[in-house]
């Protein structure tokens, strides 16, 4: 096995966006398979780079895939279009899965993924809006994405534009006070063009979120801050599509989607294990994880 990622390990292929009006079942099947491909590619990136945040990558992949595959009104040739939808990845440490998602949908050449974390690569440990096409905000420090997304949504409101803003935050990240400042603002300005998705995997760097600093009752808190709250299985592509893809908006209220996820999903030895926040799979673990993802291929009859 080579010590660095080579082009032989670039297994990702471009995923076509499903055409408008495609049957839901087909769209969901395509999203599911794309998410599996993204995980396979991200696994190789982290393994060969010897660094990354694979646990959070894998809890966020399905939300990212559904957003880029079927929800966001964005495209590689429209990254500067003022009327594009905005997506802010607040949990910037899952850059690996984000880069692979962007590559899957054509924002980056797949070959560029081979540079992940290498010296002078534009694909560093946290996404940079100036260097990576499609990235709306340079994130990494937690608690930054939500205020930025509120500003984006307010700009759309000032423009009387129908464009939508989505932000994906971690759940541990909700311990940052800046998020609650921003949520007050979103509610105060009645930004129903804003959707906050919380990747609720229940784990942060060192322990569970509840042991570190209890977030519960998160839904009630968001409701009290004026949000329309939904909860969803964050690995269920159909449910995510129905919820995030809906253009119905609660009148005058921003949306708060709690996506219940598992860190490291669906890898047997990673799932819900706090150590996999930024642990790197060794050769054996890499092979095992690959085999588990291969077993989920449509031909093998599996489902994520």
């Amino acid at each position: 096995m080579p010590s660095t990622l080579s082009h032989a390990h670039l297994t990702l292929t471009r995923a076509p966006r499903p055409p408008a009006g495609a049957p839901r079942d087909e769209v969901v099947a395509q999203l599911r398979e794309t998410a599996r491909q993204i995980r396979l590619q991200d696994l190789a990136l982290v393994h060969f780079a010897g660094a990354g945040h694979i646990g959070g990558d894998f809890s966020a992949v399905d939300v990212l895939t559904v957003l880029y595959g079927a929800v966001l009104d964005v495209a590689p040739d429209r990254v500067d279009d003022p009327e594009r939808d905005r997506f802010v990845l607040s949990k910037g440490h899952v850059a690996g899965s984000y880069y692979v998602t962007l590559a899957a949908y054509g924002f980056l050449p797949v070959e560029q993924l081979a540079t992940f974390l290498k010296p002078l690569s534009t694909l560093g440990g946290h996404p940079n809006r100036l260097h990576v096409p499609g990235v709306e905000a340079s994130t990494g420090p937690l608690g930054h994405g939500l205020p930025i997304a509120v500003g984006q949504a307010l700009a759309a409101r000032l423009d009387s534009s129908p464009r939508q803003t989505y932000v994906l935050t971690g759940d541990g990240e909700m311990q940052e006070g800046s998020n609650w400042e921003a949520m007050m603002s979103a509610s105060h300005y009645g930004l129903d063009n804003l959707t906050v998705v919380v990747d609720r995997n229940g784990l942060q760097q060192g322990a569970s979120t509840e042991a570190s600093m209890d977030l519960a009752p998160l839904a009630d808190k968001a409701r009290a801050f004026g949000f329309a709250v939904s909860e969803v299985d964050g690995h269920d592509h159909g449910a995510l599509l129905d919820l995030l893809g809906s253009r119905e908006r609660p009148g005058g209220r921003p949306r708060f989607v709690i996506a219940h996820t598992h860190k490291g999903h669906p890898i047997s030895f990673m799932s819900d294990q706090v150590a996999w926040h930024h642990k790197v799979p060794d050769a054996d673990q890499y092979a095992t994880a690959r085999a588990e993802l291969d077993a989920l291929a449509p031909a093998a009859g599996g489902a994520l």
């Binding site: 205020p147 930025i148 500003g151 984006q152 307010l154 800046s178 400042e181 603002s185």
Partner: peptide, 19 residues
């Protein structure tokens, strides 16, 4: 934005991203 300086600068960044 009310008395909330982190949100103030973050929102300004978002407003800038919105043109």
């Amino acid at each position: 934005v009310g008395i909330a300086e982190q949100d103030m600068v973050g929102m300004a960044a978002g407003l800038a991203g919105g043109g």
